[in-house]
């Protein structure tokens, strides 16, 4: 599913991420850990095709991202990858339904169709937001906003779900329920999961844990 090899990413003289070899299999659940500033977010941005490395190869779902241009990587991201952010990053001026459909609203190459609308409604229904679809984020509880963010990441039925510390700002109980929600949705779609986390209590739910500090050495299952 994911293969990073001989990768070097240098942002500044002070920050450099080196990965000799990282493989993640289809349907695998991988937790990414490491101290702040170690390059966790950089790693997932490289896998998502948001950043490009200085050298090395990144292949995700058979697509060689290092040889794809910005447009191709963007299209690939929309079609293949779902992203959940730490602060959810919902648009406060859109309704729940529109927030879930945002990947299609902002991408002219993948226009909104009735099928996507129906999928968004089904997703919202499945996470208990069926009657909240016309409300805006500021009218929702914290837990409801998390669910909207997860639905937005899953609406394009991605083969890879990347979550960047989604439980980082939550208490233990709320973090647990969000992880349960993500795992349940990933199970349904058999998607691969990469999740950045600082919470050691959550690691037991993953097939494998990758410490960014160890990536310079080989890290393959």
């Amino acid at each position: 599913m994911i293969h990073l090899q001989n990768l070097l990413f240098r942002r500044t003289d002070e920050f450099e991420l080196t990965i000799s070899d990282l493989r993640v299999n289809d349907g695998e659940r991988v937790a990414i850990i490491g101290p702040s500033g170690s390059g966790k977010t950089t790693l997932i941005d490289l896998i998502a095709g948001i950043l490009t490395p200085n050298k090395g190869d990144i292949v995700v779902a058979g697509k060689d991202l290092t040889r794809a241009d910005e447009t191709a990587r963007r299209r690939f991201r929309i079609a293949t990858i779902g992203l959940v952010f730490q602060r959810f990053e919902l648009m406060d001026y859109l309704t729940v339904e529109e927030n879930i459909l945002l990947p299609f609203l902002i991408n002219p190459a993948q226009p909104l169709t009735p099928e996507y609308r129906s999928r968004a409604r089904d997703l919202a229904q499945s996470v208990g937001l069926g009657d909240q679809q016309h409300r805006r984020p500021d009218q929702l509880s914290h837990g409801e906003r998390q669910r909207v963010a997860v639905c937005r990441a899953l609406v394009s039925q991605p083969r890879l779900l990347i979550a960047d510390e989604p439980t980082g700002n939550l208490d233990e109980e709320t973090g647990r329920s969000l992880l349960d929600l993500i795992l349940a949705q990933v199970d349904k779609t058999s998607a691969t999961l990469l999740m950045v986390t600082h919470d050691p209590s959550l690691l037991a739910n993953f097939d494998r844990t990758v410490d960014v500090r160890d990536l310079a050495a080989e890290n393959t299952p």
Binding site: D45, A48, T71, R74, I78, M91, L102, I106, P108
Partner: peptide
């Protein structure tokens, strides 16, 4: 800025 950055990360082109 954050709103546009989120859009970009999701897959929105800068021109959009």
């Amino acid at each position: 800025h954050r709103e546009f950055e989120t859009m970009h990360r999701i897959g929105c082109h800068r021109s959009t």
